[in-house]
Design a protein around this nucleic acid. Structure first.
Lengths: 338, 338
DNA sequence: AACATCAACGAAAGCGCTTTCGATCCAGAG
DNA sequence: CTCTGGATCGAAAGCGCTTTCGTTGATGTT
């Protein structure tokens, strides 16, 4: 490994001047700067990030934390899409992402501790339980942070407009003539789950639609499997719904499976609208009508918010709500008159 | 930020002893070690990773590089599953992952350079073009590396048994009575694409099956869209196949779409078998029969290989081939006699 | 000729930690 | 009582880089 001292020796300047040349300080002449740059290139010099960070207290890294409960980590298409967008934009600003564990060389430790240890310049946490103490701890710390897909009064957050997403769905279903509309919700302790329920409730009330007994069923952690189970419950009702708003595409797909297995035709017997617009949604049969979350915009906005905090060196508290969009495909149909 | 000097001052020992206590050196008495540990906990001491790395030349990070060509990055279910598995196991060993860009604060640079700059202890590259000079550069360097889903004579690689994957598929199709079997391949310059072609070719030869004109079509970068297009070509043939082995689930799904659009029934008119077993495969209609890659095993094996190299401080050159498995679902059917 | 100004460079301290190599002290050996 | 050896501890150098604060010499001013 070749250092600025090697460059100094070679060029005859001091290490100070070399460092300054490398960092575009104004008090080094064009000529010597060029000479230094040239021999740096020639000798294959590379700065040492650790030394730099140690000296400057800036690491040009940002830590990312995934939700833990649902074991899926980055396998979930929504999360991975958001992170990919975030990565792409953070990269442009010169930051690398570090996926940290809580495992400080086998002394267990918290995420915050781990991130502090790593000296990250900021943190992004994605889709978490709002009362996860780990997340709270990070939010309460003074380090720049942005959390995605969750609300909080004490930090920057960005999430989809879950409320109007629910409305969009319900209004659409209603416009197709449906009145008996059920909701398979996500876990209410998850922020997204809770707000989508609220959206459902609000829209139903505004439309003066009744919410029959058993029409609101908790689908849990958004998995396909749980979607199936929830659908079973709905179908067991004496007066089952004609349309269902489902808080996640995975659950919706599971639900469709279950319905088909029972002999229901979708969308003829049952209209279904999902949430997320994961890739799979376009390829199941029938193609899933859904509320699309703009993962790209979420990632971009999150990056901007984090950058701003890092630059200003102070937390900023704000909520960015990203609009959602109804994607009409094939899983909903006008209710046929009986 | 509190340092070992703070601990030293507080406990009355030297910073040397504090460091030794923290690192379990043998030449510090039980009593003082405990005292130091206690005040460390009490004062909320956290080591500084940068200082440690600078001093020890070990960073406890490993760099990950995704393939670039296909713009999908970590959005691809296969890659993200492998990386998730890798992450989980590397974490147990105390390593964090860093997703690096090539953008050294806006002086563009190579991945290798960036990883050197970051001082990673090892590199994992996943699914790449075998002749990407970036990858070659890393392989040729002396840093521990493991590459996934690609073959190479000069480093540790781990990939699925693509050859017998192809055979598995063809034999299965043949066992169902098919003889006119086509292959929609992945880009042959991608390792996985190329070997699956070979598997197809070998199996067909062994079975003494003819490969009719136009039966081998290049599906490109494994996307749904390209799968559709490839299928179109196949269907345009004067003598179209009755069964198709497709080198990736995404392509297979696209292909099914295209076939359906043309009025073909699957599996009645056309048997289709995919590759990967992505989540979506179980939920399209018909459910896709496919060759499952064991992403978990791949991640584990890759971790082990990398750890071994890091510990031994020398590259090890080896090929780990992970078995694949035929997952029988609904997209293939016995050929009906005419 | 004497002075102020400015451009270009370097000495040195500091970032937080590790590690080598002694130094010290005390128990037990001879 | 002297000597040896082991158990504890610390001084100091070093990891590679940044940054403050001077120093130097040249230029321009009166």
């Amino acid at each position: 490994m070749i250092t600025i001292y090697d460059l100094a020796k070679k060029t005859g300047f001091s290490s100070t001047t070399v460092s300054k040349a490398l960092n575009n300080y104004p008090d080094v002449s064009k000529k010597t700067r060029q000479a230094i740059l040239d021999t740096a290139a020639e000798m294959g010099y590379l700065p040492n990030a650790h030394a730099q960070s140690l000296s400057t207290k800036k690491s040009w890294t940002i830590g990312v934390m995934f939700s833990e409960d649902n074991e899926i980590g980055m396998k979930h298409p929504f999360f991975s899409a958001v992170i990919e967008s975030f990565r792409k934009h953070a990269e442009k600003e010169g930051y690398d992402l570090i996926l940290a564990s809580r495992n400080l060389r086998n002394r267990g430790s918290s995420y915050l501790e781990h991130f502090m240890y790593r000296g990250v310049d900021g943190i992004v946490v994605i889709c978490s339980d709002p009362n996860d103490p780990q997340v709270q701890e990070m939010i309460d710390a003074s380090i720049p942070i942005v959390v995605i897909d969750m609300s909080n009064q004490n930090c920057s957050v960005v999430f989809s407009d879950n409320l109007s997403g629910g409305e969009l769905a319900i209004n659409y279903l209603h416009s197709l003539g449906h009145t008996k509309i059920a909701h398979i919700s996500g876990e209410p302790t998850i922020y997204a789950g809770q707000v989508r329920i609220q959206g459902y409730l609000d829209a139903m009330k505004r439309l003066n639609l009744p919410i029959l007994d058993g029409y609101l069923v908790n689908g849990g952690m958004f998995s396909i499997e749980e979607g199936s189970q929830a659908m079973e419950k709905l179908l067991d009702l004496k007066d089952p719904p004609t349309a269902i708003f489902i808080a996640g595409d995975h659950m919706a797909i599971g639900a469709m499976e279950a319905a088909k297995k029972r002999g229901y035709k979708i969308p003829d017997d049952l209209s279904i609208i999902g949430y997320d617009d994961i890739e799979m949604a376009s390829y199941v049969t029938p193609k899933l009508t859904t509320i699309k979350q703009d993962t790209d915009a979420i990632g971009i906005r999150a990056t901007q918010l984090l950058m701003k905090q890092i630059i200003q060196k102070k937390k900023i508290i704000t909520e960015e709500i990203i609009p959602v969009e109804l994607i009409e495909r094939e899983s909903c149909k006008r209710l046929k008159k009986k």
